[in-house]
Design a protein around this nucleic acid. Sequence first.
DNA 1: TCCAACAGATTACGTTTGTAGTCTGATTAC
DNA 2: GTAATCAGACTACAAACGTAATCTGTTGGA
Lengths: 127, 127
Amino acid sequence: MEKNIPNISESEWEIMNVLWDKAPQTANDVILSLQESTDWKPKTIRTLLDRLVQKDVVGVNKNLRVYTFYPLYIQEECQRAETESFIKRIYGGTLKSMLAQFIQEDTLSNDDINELRFILDKKSKKQ
Amino acid sequence: MEKNIPNISESEWEIMNVLWDKAPQTANDVILSLQESTDWKPKTIRTLLDRLVQKDVVGVNKNLRVYTFYPLYIQEECQRAETESFIKRIYGGTLKSMLAQFIQEDTLSNDDINELRFILDKKSKKQ
DNA sequence: TCCAACAGATTACGTTTGTAGTCTGATTAC
DNA sequence: GTAATCAGACTACAAACGTAATCTGTTGGA
């Protein structure tokens, strides 16, 4: 398991999400995907892509005339790293306190709650 | 009810956590608190404090010779705002998917799990 | 065949963030 | 009373970020 994932900025996460959804993709594919959900200009998206390549978070295949891009890290791995540092900063390191706060609120539907309980049950039986 | 909370950067969050823990505090109080957990120079901490004041996230009492600082927002309110945007960006907006991933892993102790289940039970009974 | 459109490379530029340092006036320790 | 210290105000400066535009070589159509 590699560590030291480079920092991925907020905007860059949008790019990554598109690439994790499907890869490889050309810059244009990514631009089309994001044209719907953002109002970034194509050149902006291209810049973000290039920066991710520089940061070694995204790889490029230059064999074809039009380059294709693909993530160099697994999504879960990045999510976990980001979430850990987030929780430490915002909630003093205890995931539980965060969960408790969110379960308390109306952010979760009844179905969600049931599903979570199911996951929790399974988990605690296994141990 | 809440207005738009200004952006709080990573380092600024450390300051806020100290102020939420106890307020008001002088700059020096904050500096002493953080001297243990960080290696920031006093001037750095002072700058961060001043920036938070500029951003209207922290208030100052200038009545005494040495100013005292206090948060202008409730911690939970800021945590919620930050968490919502975080989850949207990193997990596509579904808190559940994040919870599922984290419950799955060994990040939570058995006690934590039981406690969460308790909270979930209470919650679903109320609805 | 010639040009408009496109991909990639390079450059731009203001803002935010991290990380302090200097200057100045008040204060305290001797 | 004077020098060292401290708080607050102001200044510094590079890296990262957001948000593109320009320049240049290629190519797909008319």
